[in-house]
Design a protein around this nucleic acid. Structure first.
Length: 592
RNA sequence: GGUCCCAUAGCUCAGCUGGAUAGAGCACAGGUUUUCUAAACCUGCGGCCAUUGGUUCGAAUCCAAUUGGGAUCACCA
């Protein structure tokens, strides 16, 4: 039983004894005591004045007295208006501290003690390189997965690769016509960049063809359909669906280039996957499921043989699931993929889809359809919807070329980290130093993105993101490095359990209280799929530690017990920072 | 037009299920080094929490309307 639970049941008991009436447990809430008053935990007693029939002050005093007499942890209390401020005994805090220090990964739940959850993230198209938007997706998905693991769940990281469709054919066609056999090896380009180049190439030709046709007096709409490039691309798609050997071989070759390119980016980002789903392998399954639903009368046909689902009762629209020519739409594939996943992993307790907020409607519909099809598990599917990343210049538009390329961005971050280090006179010319610049640059980028509430859209200002002071990843890394440096110097000192009678300084107690909140914060971050909660927490912790570090000696403290205590406090803080950073996908250097 | 999301300091963001005088960082002005990493720490400056009404002991937080911004509503993906 933790402190809050103990307090809660004691408050219930106390109110019952004092006023002969049971209070509503939900109305008992605790909060941190404001800095302006003495105390650790505050109970708001306004809700109980109805029961006590006394003034808030008297009620608070009654309850305070009861708690003080009946709970060893409550050392004293004071009352300000309707606020009952409790002072928790320092022996409680030290006891807690000793246990936490002795725990391997303090705050983490026992591995595999919870549910099995699949987290989907990244899921790019294969015709364009990854950009800043993908970075937010990837960092979020990865971090959520790691946080869920830390909360004891078994997690499967997956992505679905959109490797099928007309867009791929466009790149293929352009490469065939104008590529002269160029490969990543001969061009020196990353595979995804090379394929992306031909996608752009296609678009260029396509547009000029349209312009030509329009000049001849054809409407724009018709021109878009008649343009020779488009007709050819569509033919290619038909050939692909018929598994034409040549087209298939080309498709496989170019996809392999893209995957190799993506892998490089994933590697730089430090993320991984347990399983990949390819749409080319799942799209047919979706068709089957839709046809089954049609037989069961869940869906219906419209004129022209297209298949639809009616969601008007749910306040949504009608949605097409199969075109009149029988081909699949996006939704069809997603239905198939979801069902396949539960087939692959029967013990799955939920799927988290990390997909941009633009698709809120799509996922609402998807989950509804799955429920209509009778899949109970659909209610455990969650759309982790994240906001767009805007630039100071406005929105990112791939068509307008205002996209921030993922690889370029990372490189720039690392270069800047190096420049700053050199400016500060901390640079040196070694492989080790290069690795450090990489860690710092990447942490600036990752923290900048992860500290923002996923649901909210965010502004990505390149200059601020590269910042290393203040509320940033490097600041937290620095705190960790500082801690490590201190501990290195202390390695000859034996660390032993702290005596509960030791008197703590306010700053030390503040640190312990903050550490006390770590498990709850980690749990909230998991339950709410929000790395931002964790990110903001470690910033607080790092800041609190830095203040402590600045004001009080650790190694130079002469009192042996105090020195031991401070060393352990330092060690525990360092462990929590390191563990938390890892959950955010950020490395914690030993030196900076 | 329907539906959904958002609005907090000059800028970027915190503020958990309603609780005490709304917090950080950046920017700006200044200060701290014979002592464990100054990528640190401290002080100052900065707010009608978009507006209006409601709910109640109590609202940045809940409800409604208004204004401004964004997303979405394809036999696209």
């Amino acid at each position: 039983m933790n402190l809050e639970e103990k307090l809660k049941s004691a408050v219930v008991e106390g109110i019952e004894k004092l006023y002969n009436q049971k209070p509503d447990e939900k109305r008992i809430n605790f909060q941190k005591t404001s800095k302006d008053f003495e105390g650790d935990i505050t109970i708001v007693v306004f809700p109980f004045t109805g029961i006590s029939k006394k003034t808030p002050e008297q009620t608070a005093n009654d309850i305070g007295n009861f708690l003080k007499e009946n709970l060893a942890e409550v050392e004293s209390f004071n009352v300000v208006k309707g606020f009952l401020n409790l002072v928790i005994s320092s022996s409680f805090w030290i006891d807690f501290f000793n246990t936490a220090s002795a725990t391997e990964h303090f705050g983490f739940a026992t591995p595999n003690s919870g549910k099995t959850i699949m987290v989907e993230y990244a899921s790019p198209n294969t015709n364009k390189p990854l950009h800043l938007g993908h970075i937010r997706n990837i960092l979020l998905g990865y971090s959520v997965a790691e946080i869920l693991k830390a909360n004891g769940h078994k997690v499967l990281k997956v992505q679905v690769i959109n490797d099928r469709g007309i867009h791929i054919c466009k790149s293929m066609l352009a490469w065939q016509k104008w590529g002269n056999g160029e490969t990543p090896q001969t061009s020196g380009l990353k595979g995804d960049k090379l394929v992306g180049k031909y996608y752009v190439e296609f678009d260029k030709h396509y547009k000029s063809e349209i312009a030509e046709l329009v000049a001849k007096g054809i409407t724009k709409e018709d021109a878009e359909k008649q343009a020779p490039s488009m007709v050819e691309a569509q033919n290619m798609l038909l050939k692909w669906e018929a598994k034409d050997t040549d087209v298939y071989a080309l498709w496989e070759m170019m996809n392999s280039w893209v995957y190799a390119g993506f892998d490089v980016t994933y590697n730089s980002l430090g993320v991984d996957f347990d399983k990949l789903y390819y749409e080319s392998q799942t799209w047919l399954r979706g068709k089957d499921e839709v046809l089954k639903g049609l037989e069961q009368g869940i869906f219906y046909r419209k004129e022209g043989q297209s298949v639809w689902v009616d969601l008007t009762k749910e306040g949504l629209d009608e949605k097409v699931l199969l075109r009149s020519d029988g081909t699949a739409v996006y939704m069809t594939q997603d239905i198939g993929t979801a069902i396949l996943r539960y087939h692959d992993f029967p013990d799955l307790n939920g799927i988290v889809y990390t997909v941009a907020t633009e698709q809120d409607y799509h996922f609402k519909v998807l989950f509804l359809i799955l429920q209509k099809l009778g899949f109970e598990w659909a209610k455990n599917c969650y759309h982790l919807s994240y906001g767009m990343v805007d630039l100071p210049s406005g929105k990112m538009k791939s068509r307008e070329g205002t996209v921030v390329d993922a690889d370029d961005l990372m490189e720039e971050m690392i270069t800047t980290a190096k420049e700053i280090s050199l400016e500060k006179g901390k640079g040196e010319d070694s492989a080790e130093a290069e690795e450090l610049y990489r860690m710092i640059g990447m942490s600036a980028l990752k923290y900048f993105i992860l500290k923002v509430d996923p649901k909210k859209k965010m502004l990505f200002n390149p200059q601020e993101s590269i910042d290393i002071n203040g509320h940033t990843g490097p600041f937290i890394q620095y705190t960790h490095a500082r801690i490590k440096s201190l501990l290195r110097r202390a390695d000859s000192v034996s660390i032993s359990e702290v005596n509960t009678s030791l008197s703590m300084l306010p700053k030390e107690k503040e640190l312990i209280k903050l550490i006390y909140q770590f498990p709850a914060t980690l749990k909230e971050a998991g339950d709410g799929y929000s790395p931002a909660l964790l990110a903001n927490y470690i910033y607080e912790l790092a800041k609190e530690y830095n203040q402590f570090y600045h004001d009080f000696p650790v190694l130079k403290e002469e009192d042996k017990d105090k020195k031991n205590f401070r060393l352990q406090l330092t060690a525990l803080t360092g462990k929590i920072i390191k563990d938390s950073l890892r959950l955010l996908g950020i490395q914690a250097p030993e030196k900076m």
